[in-house]
Amino acid sequence: MTELRERSRALFARLAELAPDDPERAAVRDELVALHTGLAVSTARRFSRRGEPSEDLEQVAMIGLLKAIDRFDPQRQVEFSTFATPTVLGEVRRHFRDTAWALHVPRGLRELSVQIGPTVEALTAELDRSPRPSEVAARLGVSTARVVEALEAADAYATIPLDAPLPEGRSLADTLGGVDAALDRVHERAALRPLIDALPERERTILAMRFFEEMSQSQIASRVGVSQMHVSRLLAHTLATLREGLADDVEAARAVAP
């Protein structure tokens, strides 16, 4: 240990003597890094149980070590290791604050939301209605608060493409008849009719089921063979499409009759 300390002092003294552009600096610096690698690694290990890969943390700690070497002033009556430890720790903490928090927390949530989909489907079949967050939480053995967060994350990280195909062999034709009758109640039907006709068949069917036949999203999901979350997303998308279409129609009318 004292040997290490003396070698370190000698190297820092040498480094102080060398001009900033002296090619020997790199070699001296490399030896200092090698000498103190243990400090960086042991600091990184203190944090490795937080779920970050330990190689990544060691890299970050090494950056901290390099910064400490560059900033160390051998004139000060302080051991390098005493000076370096807070610098290395600071670097690791900054890493957690800047990257690990953003990546790690949602990663956990994303894993949970992957489990939520199948759990919701299973519970929907068992209960014959969509489950409450607390019921999903009980099944997964996590807190309701976590499930709520994961549901929010699932929405933010929407992964199901809107044009995912329907499973084969499902006939939707029998549900389409209801649209015409229901649409009669709506005064924008003249404008809506072509917009609804232009929708892909699946979107039109889901729209009809939800708004004209008043089926619940889970009922639609099991009928159409997609997840309830997917039904929700398709409905939102379809409503936005219709709204845009109606707005264009109003503008066109305004343009014709100023």
């Binding site: 209605r129 409450r132 967050p133 549901l151 999203q217 309830q228 039904v231 939102a236």
Partner: peptide, 19 residues
Amino acid sequence: AGVAARLDLDLDHVEDMRL
């Protein structure tokens, strides 16, 4: 939707409320 989920409404209601 966050309020609905925290209220522990079933997910059909959460999604309906969002829409």
